[in-house]
Simulated assay, not measured.
Amino acid sequence: MRLLTTCSHLFQFLLYLVLLLLLSVPNVYSQSVVTSNQVAKEGDGEVVIPCDYSQVNETPLSVIWNEVNESGETNTNIIVNDVMTVNGRYSLRKSPGNADLVITKPVRNDTERRFKCEILLQRRKFIQSDPSMLTVYYLDEPVLSASASSVYEGESVTLTCSKPDGDPDPSITWYKDGQALSTTDTTRFTTSEDALEIHIEAATAADGGRYTCKAESDQFREEGKNSNQIDLKVIYIAITFESQGGTATCTAKGNPIPSSLMIHKNGEMNDKGELTASVKINEEICKADITCSAENGAVSATETLKTCKTVPSSCIALTTGMFFVGVFVGCIGLAAGLIGYFRIKQKKSEAMRSTDTRKHDTYMKYIADTSDENHTYQDLQHTKEETAYINARAGNYHHK
């Protein structure tokens, strides 16, 4: 029993010594260096891979960045350290507790490269971070081509957008005159399964315009990459020849713009213009062969006047009669207006007669005329020169 007790005490003593010895040695393995994977785009100014050693209790003697393989083994020389802080595109950026690796102008070949940060302590002890992997996304510009840049109306044409290289895999969007083009509109054109081709079976004037394609991906959703521009020209000419209101008018439009426009009557030119021409309609014209022709240097077209509507003579007589009735009514209205004007002017003149009896210096005596019962006070107030004020106070009346 005593032997067992002695052995137990000895074991406890040895365990205490081991623990004391371990506590006297710097706890290197409990300290960590933290880094993380990073993502960049090709064309960025720089990408920073962090190295955080703020949990290390000792002041490091040196910081070293190495490139490692998938297994974490160093496969190149030192990239940067405290002595060589700049090495081509790589540089060491230090701050208290941090020693970051800076890579300027990352390129697609930098993707999936792995880097490790090492901290050198006293007694040649190293603390290493886990490998940090760099991913660089990229996207090339698509290239647009066409089977022909200029086609006649009714001909076929195919536009092809080459799918660019990119990570992640890009998608393609078509644009016409700056507006997104719906590739599901099968009434106008057909597209390939991957939407890299647009085939127009019979081109129309509406198909002409400026075409581009744009490559986009999750990492390049906002900016994307635009292709070159192709200006598709559809050569055509269109004529409209109609009669209305006693006139047959012919108009033309096309690409190129029409250079001449002519109306013929039985083969002889009747009128000529650039974009429009017209001829008066009568029974003789309607019985003749009336055509309109136009050309623009590339194509020409002729249109026959299909509807010839003359203005009936009864309508002309009615229009003339209405004109004279309008003149007569206008004259009556003018006369009535003048009469009204002078009557209003006369009333305004009468309204200006004053009955202000306070102006004693202009009073005149009132002499009653008993022979005329209609002779009133107001009649005596008005003169051609000015308003006369009548003294109508008691004692100033005189009778004839």
Rank of each mutant, 00 (worst) to 15 (best):
M1F: 08
L3W: 06
H9I: 13
L10R: 12
F11T: 13
L19M: 12
L21M: 05
S32W: 09
N37V: 04
V39N: 11
A40R: 10
G45I: 11
C51I: 10
D52A: 11
D52Y: 09
Q55R: 15
L61Y: 06
G72T: 10
N77V: 06
M84H: 08
R93W: 03
S95H: 04
P96T: 14
P96M: 03
D100E: 07
I103Y: 03
T104H: 10
R108M: 04
K116S: 08
E118S: 15
Q122F: 03
R123N: 13
R124M: 03
S129C: 05
S132N: 07
L134N: 08
Y137V: 01
Y137W: 12
L139N: 06
P142A: 01
S149H: 08
V157R: 05
L159E: 02
C161H: 04
D167V: 14
D169F: 09
P170V: 11
Y175W: 12
E193K: 14
A195F: 10
I200G: 01
Y211T: 07
C213T: 06
F220G: 05
G224L: 06
L232N: 10
I237L: 15
A248P: 07
C250T: 04
P258Q: 04
E274S: 13
T291P: 02
C292E: 02
S293M: 08
E295S: 15
N296P: 06
A298V: 11
V299P: 02
C308L: 01
C308M: 02
C308G: 06
P312R: 07
L334G: 08
A335I: 15
G337V: 00
I339R: 12
G340V: 07
R343M: 10
I344P: 00
K348G: 02
D361P: 00
T362E: 07
T370P: 00
A394K: 13
H398A: 12
H399K: 10
